[in-house]
């Protein structure tokens, strides 16, 4: 999915995504992270390839290289560098990457009802909140329980991450849009559960560290 446009400088049609293939002037950058980086639209991204591409493009697009160029190109190099940094930050993190692909596909993130949460998890969350309450009230007897909960929730996060990994592979293997969407839907649900649990873990971390401080 390359962007097809005429070069703003020389008018060459279908100029190319970064530089005009005829006059080599920098083109207006596309805001799509995958297209911008020239990567296939896959959820499983090889971090080494991503990093290599990021460094190569950083050098190519750095505003210092455009100080003697036209105002238009100076502006494009600033814009492109900023998109490049955002793209790298988002795509190198599997969670942020999945959320990006979901949003681009038109999924809303954040809408969820309790029926998506397994009852055992709710039970554990409730107990955890009770223990946090007691800790805030000054009862340190709950500390071992909290540490155990934190450990359990971290294990849960690790399991969720490996499930996500599998979903990513499955998503990338689908050929048609409808099957991809079906996998994206599952990924969204897993992401919701993950966020729920990671919020809890950070709450426990906060409480435990404020006591140690």
């Amino acid at each position: 999915m390359a962007s097809h446009h005429d070069c703003w400088q020389c008018g060459t049609p279908d100029a190319g995504s970064l530089f005009c293939r005829y006059c080599n002037s920098l083109q207006a950058p596309t805001p799509d992270y995958y297209v911008f980086l020239g990567l296939p639209r896959r959820l499983a991204v090889d971090p080494a390839i991503l990093q290599k591409q990021f460094y190569a493009m950083s050098r190519m697009l750095h505003p210092d290289r455009y100080t003697r160029r036209s105002e238009q190109e100076k502006r494009y190099s600033l814009e492109a560098s900023s998109i490049l940094n955002d793209a790298y930050r988002v795509l190198r993190d599997p969670i942020a990457r999945a959320e990006y692909v979901l949003r681009e596909a038109g999924f809303e993130i954040g809408e969820q009802r309790s029926k998506d949460v397994p009852p055992e998890l709710l039970e554990e969350v409730f107990e955890l909140n009770m223990a946090l309450d007691e800790l805030r009230a000054g009862d340190s007897e709950v500390l071992p329980q909290l540490q155990e909960s934190r450990h359990n929730f971290k294990l849960m996060l690790a399991r969720i991450d490996s499930v996500l990994e599998e979903h990513f592979q499955r998503h990338d293997g689908q050929q048609d849009v409808a099957s991809r969407r079906a996998v994206l839907e599952q990924i969204r649900n897993v992401l919701h559960r993950r966020r729920y649990i990671s919020n809890l873990v950070s709450e426990v971390d906060k409480q435990l560290s404020s006591r140690n401080a």
Partner: peptide
């Protein structure tokens, strides 16, 4: 009844 709303972390018994 134990229910929860993960988007805001609420849990209600």
């Amino acid at each position: 009844g134990l229910v929860g709303a993960p988007e805001c972390g609420d849990v209600m018994k």
